[in-house]
Design a protein around this nucleic acid. Structure first.
Lengths: 106, 106
DNA sequence: GTTCTTTATCGTAATATTGCGATATAACAA
DNA sequence: TTGTTATATCGCAATATTACGATAAAGAAC
């Protein structure tokens, strides 16, 4: 137990849950907001802005990168992360599609 | 450790992360989709449709109820769950607001 | 009343997440 | 070269999540 039974769900359901999981931590929301406001794309700047340890921020960045929401560019000895616009838009669409299905119920 | 440092984030960031967490499991996506399609609002029906144990579905329903995305009405000895339209719309707006902040970056 | 049905909750095992210090790696600075 | 800076990754401890069997509670059916 303790393991999600992904095989009984559709690919779409699993994919959407995975994207939601990437958003399911305030540090990752904060990281994305910083990138959206273009205050900070550099790992070190995010460490200063957010106030978690460098190892922790790096780990959160990796989770966002793993699901494709952000991408990283090497700039000398630093990393500049930014939103992946294609994946961002696609995710927005998938979420809006879910939320737009609302009809009145019981 | 192992505990999210909610105190260093804004209420808004914590709230959005919490809603995302509620969506961060394929079973809960499936439950919401069933309710949206009005195929099943009854716990027992969801157990049959989805194929997880009754205790597990009940637990997922509770998580959705705890964040306010769904509400439950007692119908005799059964429970009819449905989307809470106000909370649903508000959550949609908060997510869309986040996703609409996209500007081009580095 | 008794029994059946339905759902919630408890307890528990397996697994995942969060956070950070320590360390490794790679580019820059001198 | 040596030292500095920036980031990634390892390893670990604390906590959370997932899943389910067993049981409790409450209404329905008899």
């Amino acid at each position: 137990m303790g393991l999600t039974k992904t095989e009984i769900f559709s690919d779409k359901q699993n994919a959407l849950a995975k994207m939601a999981k990437a958003l399911a931590h305030p540090a990752r929301i904060a990281i994305l907001e910083h990138m959206l406001e273009q205050k900070a794309c550099i790992c070190g700047d995010l460490v200063t802005e957010i106030g978690l340890a460098q190892a922790t921020i790096s780990q959160h960045l990796r989770e966002l990168k793993d699901v494709g929401l952000i991408k990283g560019n090497i700039e000398g000895n630093r990393m500049c992360y930014c939103i992946d616009e294609a994946k961002w838009s696609l995710t927005k669409k998938e979420l809006v599609d879910l939320f737009n299905q609302l009809k009145s119920c019981c």
